[in-house]
Amino acid sequence: MWGLGILKGMAVTMRNAMRGPITVRYPDQRLPLPERARWAVSHRYDENGRPKCTACLICVKECPDHILSIAVSRTADGGKHIDSYRYELGACMMCGLCVEACPYDAIEMSHEYELASADQGDLVRELLHDVDAASPRRAASPAKEAADA
């Protein structure tokens, strides 16, 4: 019948109107993020509060936008020391490849999504500064780690 499509469309919008709004007044009310939402990259820490990053640089190599950079130096005992872990938030496209590439589960896509800033400097973050990198061997054998300490 001619016009049936129009009536069907009207029924759809009327159903929508009956459903009520699914949006909220944003800054006052917030909807929970989906579990797998990908926002700013952040570090994971072990139970002692030390970063799990081993400074293996795989994330740096993997990043398609070249926005991660790690400055590494050697400690006296031959371990790695992270002078800085730099993350250019403003150029990040939240693809999550760095997180997928990380063999030590040391970084994650956090749920921090309110990233706008009036200061350009806030868009370049130093995620780690002057900390010892985790050692996979040390993490594997707590006894040796204790002995090292």
Binding site: T13, N16, A17, R19, P21, I22, T23, R25
Partner: peptide, 13 residues
């Protein structure tokens, strides 16, 4: 308000 309702939005608040 009517359009917002049809679009499942809140409209001006």
């Amino acid at each position: 308000k009517v359009l917002a309702r049809l679009h499942l939005r809140l409209g001006p608040t």
